[in-house]
Design a protein around this nucleic acid. Structure first.
Lengths: 262, 262
DNA sequence: ACATACATCTCGCGA
DNA sequence: TCGCGAGGTGTATGT
């Protein structure tokens, strides 16, 4: 229970003791994990009610709040970073409330039993690196346009048109304009509609021939017909292959490319 | 440390002790919370790397895995329910790995220090009730069609068309067909495209006049023009108002309505 | 602040 | 199993 300890763990505290511990944590911006029996009331964009049951509450240093049941990936209730917390003891209940603004949303957590409280800080300054995002695919195409086809030349990246952005815009070996829509997973109906919109937007502005190309690892079954009827094309490209391309020492070339202003 | 305890909390265990505790938990399908210093490697749909740092690991009864840093709503790494876990001690490192199939994805967690392990079960059988969902708006419209306009009569609910479902389909006081697309928050471009698709699908099948109506609390700014050019309409409806309507004793009437097969 | 689009989205429903 | 759409989606990136 000495405050200099990195970890303070208290089992089966009284609600009074719990209130004191939590109060200190909220001031010190430590992390808080509570396992207990509680109910949850949420009001905001929607509302929800969850009756008493045993769950896990996590309060992070930045005010993020997560309530997890014994199953599932998602928290059953939560509050995003920046929420303001209050704790108060009311007769036989310990109430933690958290408010966010814009949109205004309130979360009330009512404990009638706490099994464990744990409070601590975390030293964690590591970078998180993710590979094979859609952006990695964009970069790979710009770095090596032959991923699309021989003779393809990119003109611009994230080109603004009518209502949105064309992922990659270029010219093929015959001088036809090429509009490319990139998806990092199997492309469905919306990807095609998006592409079609961009193609028609470009066609309105130019007399030249315009090709619309959907680039993705694959397309969903029903889409082949839709693509055909809209006179659009599909070219297969795997996001992980793109990520590997970017890991190679050619990185410098890519930097140069990205430093050019289109 | 006696097994009959609901909670077992161990501070600063050796990695050997930790491995033993974790091994038992995985067999007993208990919940596991570990706070420690570890790195994380993910490979699957994408890949990621997170170097050593102090974080929280949660393993749930259903195999869901969450890794949380000291900040943010989202877990930095995770594995969904149903993942298969293994634990093993390798020289000075404790490795927990979790595999899922379809898609095949692997998560490796390498500990070099554990500050706390906590294991327990949670009794939680409460229902979670959420109000003001889009479905609540559908129900409210069916219960009280005048929310759309005087004389509107619903014909069918979630009507299957070309590639998707029309939220609510009906007839207005002049006998025109009405296709309604409902959104529970400010509607943007996609909502309009969706509605437009359904309207054209209906027009292909019928000679009657067809109206397309977007129902939402509001629409984003740029959309007004798009709606106009596509000859679609907007009607404002608040999801929370709908939820309140449904809470009233008229519930029984609604049940009757929903038990009718369209 | 508002709007748009991505996400290892997750989750549920239907075919 | 695949495909589609909702979500208190959250999060980043513009304008």
């Amino acid at each position: 229970m000495i405050n200099s300890e990195k970890f303070i763990v208290t089992k089966n505290p009284t609600l009074e003791d719990a209130a004191a511990i939590i109060g200190k944590v909220l001031v010190n911006k430590k992390i808080l994990i509570i396992v207990g029996n509680f109910k949850v009331i949420y009001n905001g964009r929607a509302s929800s009610n969850l009756e008493y049951g045993e769950r896990i509450l996590i309060v992070k240093s930045d005010g993020a709040i997560l309530i997890h049941r014994s199953f599932g990936y998602e928290p059953v209730n939560w509050q995003p970073p920046g929420s303001i917390l209050h704790v108060q003891k009311k007769s036989n209940i310990l109430e933690i409330s958290a408010i966010r603004h814009n949109p205004r949303e309130t979360l009330k957590i009512l404990f009638d039993k706490i099994f464990m409280i744990s409070t601590f800080s975390l030293d964690d300054f590591a970078d998180f690196n993710l590979f094979a995002s859609e952006k990695d695919m964009h970069k790979a195409i710009l770095l090596k346009p032959s991923l699309i086809e021989q003779g393809f030349k990119p003109i611009s990246y994230e080109k603004k048109v009518d209502p949105g952005f064309i992922d990659v815009y270029g010219v093929d070996k015959n001088g036809k304009l090429v509009v490319i829509e990139v998806k990092r997973k199997i492309a469905g109906k919306y990807a095609v509609l998006q592409l079609a919109k961009y193609v028609t937007a470009i066609k309105r502005k130019s007399d030249r021939d315009v090709r619309g190309v959907l680039v993705a690892p694959n397309i969903s079954k029903g889409i082949q017909n839709l693509l055909f009827s809209l006179e659009l094309e599909f070219i297969a490209l795997d996001p992980k292959k793109c990520a590997n391309l970017l890991k190679k020492p050619k990185d410098k070339k890519l930097e140069l490319f990205f430093n050019k202003t289109f």
